[in-house]
Amino acid sequence: MSNWDRFVETFFNAKVLARYWPDIVAGLWVTIGLAALVVVSGLVAGLGLALLRSLGVRVLNWAIIFVVDVFRALPPLVIIVLIYFGLPSLDIVPSGFVSTWASLALVLMAFAEEIFWAGLTAVPKGQWEAARSTGLGFGQTLMRVVLPQALRITIPPLTNRTIAITKGTALGSVVAVSEILGQASSAVSNSYNPSPLTLGAAAYLVLFLPVVVFGRWVEARFR
């Protein structure tokens, strides 16, 4: 057998691919669901924290900064493992899916908070003063005048950070989440052939390549 045949046999084994592609597609859906949950909950929580921080309550802000720094410092896998293997000793038994979701959402929340906060503080003070001088309240000024301007500034860094963190869904395979990588790994151990990993990689490309291209467009559009 030539090297080329060995290569094809290893990574593009037709029988294995035919046998396991439905599993990878199932994993793709799990990844999509997990990613969507992480993005929505992480961004909403991050925006919420940034808005809370803008209230300027000192003790609250210290707490926010502490939480944010902790989740920016910890590797996501460490948080996943802590939740999945640690919480059960408190009689809370989260599934691998929930552990991964919660971990990545917390990490995205932390980074998103910092990005939203930077955007909010980048809006000139004169915008606040103009709005307040016409009688708008704090909340009205924040939501109608300041936040729309802040969001524009935050979209490019936020898009990049969100993509980076969402790819971390693959870490779920460590705690038995049957997302793309999890499905591919078990297919590999069942078939004694790495071809399912090729399919897995292809599935990640199908999912994330459009998102990355979209991020590039966003970056150009909102710069």
Binding site: A130, A131, Q149
Partner: peptide
């Protein structure tokens, strides 16, 4: 906020909402 409706202010740097 109600009182400020009666007090218009114009700034050196305009401060229009862009």
């Amino acid at each position: 906020n109600h009182a400020r409706q009666r007090i218009g202010m114009v700034f050196q740097s305009f401060n229009l909402y862009p």
